Amino acid sequence: MQATKTRRSNKDRTDATRADLIAAARKLFTEKSYAETGTPEIVAAAGVTRGALYHHFADKQALFRAVVEMEAKAVAAEIERAAERFDENPGIALLAGSDAYFTAMRVPGRTRLLLLDGPAVLGRAALDEMDLRHGNRTLREGLAAMMDAGLIRRLPVEPLAELLGAAFDRAALAIEAGSPTDDYLTALHAIIDGLAQSAK
């Protein structure tokens, strides 16, 4: 029994150290950028040793990848929470998920991490692969549900999700730069409505 408690305690400490490193790194990466942030700053902000950093992450890039993955998961979770309220209507669910994407991307630093520094540091292929598990996955599922319900004509889901996803990302960047959110929502809703019209 004591050994079990010790193992659990060790895991809790390990998880807490990892979480502290990710949180400290996220703050610094968004405030200063990846390039301008050094590992000594990260470990100081996290209150851990340099050895602890390299115990959990191979290098600064690996830590950055963990930060970006965490942000991508958070965005996908926001989309899913919004869409699942309308499971009975895939069209409304997709629109609700679209709105939720922009809400999620308003979290300070998220656009920079996912759409600017992420591709620059990790490479476009790595970000695309990550997106396939998170944001793009929710979009693919939403589009497939609309096709299955006969709400839009059947099209290749992967390319359609990729193209729409790029439009969402471009809109998020424009909104971050000060463009009106409602204008982009209106345009993207019109694109989705257009897909629905093509099924009639």
Results as ranks from 00 to 15, higher is better:
V67W: 00
R140E: 09
A126I: 12
E84G: 01
M147Q: 14
V68A: 09
R124C: 10
A66N: 06
V68W: 00
N136L: 15
L114K: 06
R85M: 13
L122Q: 00
A145P: 01
G97C: 07
A76L: 03
R112C: 08
R154M: 10
A96I: 12
G97I: 06
G135A: 12
L127E: 13
T103A: 12
R112F: 08
A126K: 13
M130L: 15
G109I: 01
I92P: 00
D99V: 15
F64G: 05
A126E: 15
A77F: 07
F102G: 01
T111H: 13
P159C: 07
E69Y: 05
D131S: 13
A62C: 05
R81D: 15
L132T: 09
T111N: 15
A145I: 01
P156S: 02
D87T: 15
G91N: 09
A74D: 05
G135H: 08
M146I: 07
G118M: 02
R85A: 14
I152E: 03
L155V: 13
L151D: 10
L122I: 05
A93S: 10
A82E: 00
P159N: 05
V157T: 13
Q61I: 14
L143P: 03
N89S: 12
L115C: 01
A125F: 04
T138P: 02
A72H: 00
R137V: 05
R140N: 03
D117F: 10
F86K: 02
R65S: 10
G142L: 07
L127G: 11
R110S: 00
M105E: 00
P108K: 12
R154W: 06
V67M: 04
A144H: 08
V75P: 00
L143G: 07
E88F: 12
L63N: 03
R106Q: 14
